[in-house]
Design a protein around this nucleic acid. Sequence first.
DNA 1: TCCTTATGTACAA
DNA 2: TGTACCTAAGGAC
Length: 273
Amino acid sequence: MPEGHTIHRLAQDHTTLFAGRKATVTSPQGKFSDAADLLTGRELTRTEAHGKHLFLGFGPADSWVHIHLGLFGTYAMGATPAPPPTDTVRLRLLNESAYADLRGPTTCALITDAEKQAIHERLGPDPLRPSDGPAKAYARISRSRTTIAALLMDQKVVAGVGNVYRAEVLFRHGIDPYTPGRDLTEARFTQIWDDLVALMREGVRLGRIDTVRPEHTPEAMNRPPRVDDHGGEVYVYRRADQTCHLCGGEIRTAALAARNLFWCPTCQPPGAR
DNA sequence: TCCTTATGTACAA
DNA sequence: TGTACCTAAGGAC
């Protein structure tokens, strides 16, 4: 399930399991069959992630499979033998030792180098790309009246942040989600960026989103662990009407641009900079 | 079995 | 702002 950490992990895992080897490529569902036939027998040479976009590079020419999981896309990867492909598998990579099944993506398409470049150009800096930094993101944020909650979800501003990291990073910094971007100081945004780098790296490592500090874990606070299918310990995400781990107040939720926003009005008061 | 929901985005109006 | 798209799981019946 997809925020940027998932995609970077998928890029790594594809490299581990498939790079430098020829793969059999199929599309049991049928929608990617023509491209799959072209790729079968070619070598996976490179993988790359930028925000929520995954690129699988096949040699010898520079052709890429561009994948975006959207809201529902999932991967199932593992050691052979591969399970029987169901009719929802859009893309299957298979070699002697491993398989990877892609289901339900928003995008799965064969693209050129130039098309890939165009995608990079419309994305903002990604906290998980080592060469990226906060400057371009802050340049946009500092000029915008849009709320920081909306800006963090805008992939042209910051690539890879989704609804969970947005809610959690704003809580961790005590920032009201409705704060206009231009009200944030550069120092404040740099703290947010640095925290996203750390949180998302941890997300890649663990394969889930964990955002609570050591002193706020269920064990440390003697409270029951969270049970939810996104799989990590969080402060506010999907905790509407439950109590805040820090202040005991009620977590609030509201719809913002067709997504559910979660925050603690006590720990994230309006006007804090 | 049906309905709702979900870590997302693009496009129409 | 609303809607369409893609899949799977959980809860209500």
